[in-house]
Design a binder for these strands. Structure first.
Lengths: 142, 142
DNA sequence: TTTATAATTGTAGTAATTACATTTTTCGAT
DNA sequence: ATCGAAAAATGTAATTACTACAATTATAAA
């Protein structure tokens, strides 16, 4: 497991106006080092050994706080499971219908070209774009 | 409420290999005449007066059946609420963060141009594309 | 009409999330 | 240092969307 410098994490949290408690640093650090779009439940399971007092409520509260401060984003792919992503760069997702894995799809040149997508009416304002493809990944072809 | 000819609905159901029970016709008819991406719960509420014996289990079973037969599609926009859409034409969605309404976004020319989106690795196969924008609709600008 | 099959129903169960009251921690002011 | 207020974390209980399952009802072929 790659380790990030705590100082950097703390710095990023502060920059978003979040006071860096051990739980918050732990959760944010986990998200940064594990770009696997984990659910709250998985984060809890993985972090409990390192933060024995951690409660599931705190995980949920913290993730909601991160989202409201735009430090991480929600990834909604299947019903009934909310996932989280600390990578705020423009990207899409791909979920394999067989192995269930979620892959990141980064655009060439770093910027997503949404010009081909349907336009919203001119008096609408867009705040976020969520794109998810589903199919079968390389290892799951028949 | 616009009324569709039952015969047509029944015909479409049969074409997908679905035997047209009153409940199924009712649910499919509701979806066709109300392109509002309803949840199972809403469908239940709206249809109960016309189909007094309808049960929520039937609504869920029926929707799942429709999806498996590719007669309708699931629309996942927020966590914890699965929506359904009988419009199988290529289109995206827009959800207003204020009034919560979900709008359809149809592409010019009927075909969605996804060429600008990030490419999947060449050994992946894509079966569906889900695109949802979020922001504020025309009536909800401040 | 009988009988097998398919569809519907209601109840009870599960899983993810949230509400809330209590406890613990943090941190500035004395 | 220590007091006290505000912030954060915790555990339990409640809520909500959905599913499993067993029992009943409807359908349709023989």
């Amino acid at each position: 497991m790659k380790e990030l410098k705590e100082d950097e994490l703390i710095c990023e949290l502060r920059a978003c106006g979040i006071s860096p408690s051990p739980q918050r640093v732990g959760i944010y650090g986990f998200l940064k080092t594990h770009p696997i779009h984990p659910t709250a439940d998985l984060i809890m399971k993985e972090l409990k050994p390192h933060l024995p007092t951690l409660s599931l409520t705190t995980v949920y509260n913290t993730l909601k706080l991160f989202v409201s401060k735009k430090l991480v984003s929600e990834v909604i792919i299947e019903d009934g499971e909310l996932r989280f992503d600390a990578d705020m760069k423009d990207h899409a997702h791909f979920k394999c219908l067989k192995c269930q894995q979620v892959f990141d799809l980064f655009p060439e040149g770093g910027k997503m070209d949404t010009s081909g997508l349907p336009q919203v009416p001119s008096n609408f304002t867009v705040e976020s774009v969520h794109i998810c493809l589903k199919g079968h990944c390389g290892s799951c072809q028949e």
